[in-house]
């Protein structure tokens, strides 16, 4: 199998074209995954930004590692509709978040509130870090304490060795 240089060039060209088309196709395919619905009309200025910020901040209850904005789950679509409806009714962010927390719990919040049941979540990492610092400090101190100390005779021998080296050079 021998291909002429021109033929190879053609092949490379076709190859790249196929690859780039495949990449483009993949990109197009992943677009529906952005699960936003038909464009919404907001009656108050600034509400659209507020809406987008809110659905980005709230967690989908069904597909738990997505926010409401990205989720394609039916419940996420329903909740987006509901949030939109509440905004049109003039409810503020805090009231909308309370609506969701009352029904689904703190779970919908990517930033859980600080309360006794979430202390471990909020302070746990710092406690672990403090524990690690204490352990490392303890080990380091013990190592330093057990470092070998030379006796008087050994010190003398060491000096003698060092002096001899100096003399040689």
């Amino acid at each position: 199998m021998q291909a002429s240089p021109g033929g190879r060039g053609l092949h490379t060209h076709t190859f790249f074209r196929i690859v780039s088309q495949a990449i483009l196709l993949l990109c197009l395919h992943s677009m529906p995954a952005l699960a936003d619905d038909a464009p919404r009309e907001f009656s108050r200025a600034g509400d659209e930004a507020r809406y987008l910020a809110l659905i980005e901040e709230l967690r989908c209850v069904k597909c738990q590692n997505q926010n409401l904005k990205d989720s394609t789950a039916g419940i996420a679509a329903d909740l987006r509709d509901e949030i939109y409806r509440m905004m049109e009714e003039g409810m503020d962010d805090a009231a909308i978040v309370r609506f969701l927390v009352d029904r689904y719990g703190d779970f919908v919040l990517y930033r859980p509130p600080l309360k006794s049941s979430t202390w471990l979540l909020w302070f746990g990492p710092f406690v672990l870090f403090a524990g690690a610092v204490i352990i490392v400090g303890y080990i380091a101190r013990r190592r330093r304490a057990s470092a070998p100390v030379l006796t008087e005779a050994e010190q003398g021998k060491l000096r003698e060795l060092l002096n001899r080296r100096d003399g040689e050079s």
């Binding site: 209850v61 738990q64 009352d102 029904r103 689904y104 719990g105 779970f107």
Partner: peptide, 9 residues
Amino acid sequence: DPSVIPSPL
């Protein structure tokens, strides 16, 4: 089970 969320209700 992470898919079970405790209900606030």
